[in-house]
Amino acid sequence: MVCRNICEKYRATKNKGSSPYAQGYKRCQVCDLFIKWSGTRCPCCQRTLRTKPHNKEAWYDE
């Protein structure tokens, strides 16, 4: 599984004040970026996207 830079088209924009997960963005761990995508797998590397924060502090920001 290697990033082929297809996901760059779907890169999420940074917004202040709110968690990216709360805004509906998903994170690919292989490509290392947040994307705006309706599927459950990355369009680039086919890895499952994270839809929830990994650490406890980020849970409270949502």
Rank of each mutant, 00 (worst) to 15 (best):
V2R: 10
C3Q: 12
R4T: 11
N5T: 11
N5H: 10
I6D: 08
C7A: 08
E8A: 14
R11F: 10
A12F: 08
A12N: 10
T13H: 12
T13M: 09
T13F: 08
N15P: 02
N15W: 10
K16S: 13
K16T: 10
G17T: 13
S18K: 15
P20H: 01
P20W: 01
P20L: 03
A22Y: 01
A22G: 03
A22H: 07
A22R: 09
Q23Y: 00
Y25F: 13
R27M: 05
C28H: 04
Q29G: 11
C31N: 03
C31M: 01
C31I: 02
C31Q: 02
D32G: 00
L33V: 05
L33H: 07
F34E: 02
I35S: 03
I35G: 04
I35M: 03
S38E: 09
S38C: 00
S38D: 09
G39E: 08
G39K: 08
G39I: 02
T40G: 01
T40S: 07
T40I: 01
T40A: 02
C42P: 09
C42N: 05
P43V: 01
C45A: 04
Q46P: 00
R50W: 11
R50L: 15
T51V: 10
K52P: 00
P53L: 05
N55W: 09
N55A: 09
N55D: 14
K56P: 14
K56H: 14
K56S: 15
A58K: 14
A58Q: 14
W59D: 14
D61V: 15
E62G: 14
E62F: 12
